[in-house]
Measured scan of single mutants.
Amino acid sequence: ATNIVSKVKWYNSTKNFGFIEQDNGGKDVFVHKSAVDAAGLHSLEEGQDVIFDLEEKQGKAYAVNLRIK
């Protein structure tokens, strides 16, 4: 899926990962520091509106092509 609009559930800049809620009630989506860095960001804030693409690797959903709404 591409261009999903949602909100950051939480992000831990010390552990370099977090999760984004899915508005459709699906499972929370993992977001890694590499996606945050690629977006030119230093961190994410809880409740922040984001747009991302969903990529599945080894049966897990990852946020990629992250951008701020």
Rank of each mutant, 00 (worst) to 15 (best):
L44Q: 01
E21Y: 15
K69H: 13
K69Y: 14
E55Y: 14
G25H: 09
F30Y: 07
D28C: 07
V36R: 00
I68L: 13
D28G: 06
D23F: 15
D28R: 04
E56Y: 15
F30Q: 01
V64M: 07
A61G: 08
Q58Y: 14
G18A: 02
H32P: 04
V50R: 00
V29F: 10
H32K: 02
G40F: 07
W10N: 02
S34R: 10
V36T: 03
V31R: 00
R67F: 06
V29S: 02
G59L: 05
I4R: 10
G40C: 09
K69N: 13
K27I: 09
N12C: 10
D53T: 06
V31D: 01
D53Y: 04
F52I: 06
Q58P: 06
E55L: 13
D23S: 15
N16C: 13
G40V: 03
G25T: 08
L54D: 00
L54M: 11
F52E: 00
A61C: 14
D53M: 04
T2C: 13
F30H: 02
W10E: 01
T14Q: 13
V31W: 02
E45Y: 15
G25V: 08
G18W: 03
G25I: 08
T2P: 06
Q22K: 12
K57P: 03
G59F: 05
N65H: 09
A1G: 12
N16P: 02
D49V: 15
L41T: 05
Q58N: 15
Y11D: 02
K33N: 04
H32Y: 05
S34Y: 08
I51W: 09
F17D: 01
K7R: 12
W10P: 00
L66Q: 00
D37M: 15
H32R: 03
H42Q: 12
K69I: 15
V64Y: 05
Y11G: 00
N24I: 10
I20W: 00
D49W: 15
Y11F: 09
E55F: 14
G47S: 05
S6P: 01
E45R: 14
K9S: 04
Y11A: 00
T2R: 12
G26R: 12
F17G: 02
N12E: 05
A38F: 08
Y11S: 00
E21Q: 14
S43W: 12
G59I: 01
D53G: 03
E56P: 03
A63V: 05
G59C: 07
I51H: 05
H42A: 13
I51Q: 08
F30P: 02
N12A: 07
S34N: 10
D37A: 14
S43R: 12
K9W: 02
G40S: 06
L41P: 02
K33D: 01
Y62I: 06
R67E: 05
Y11E: 01
F17P: 00
A39E: 02
E55Q: 11
E55W: 14
N16E: 09
F30C: 04
F19M: 05
Y62K: 07
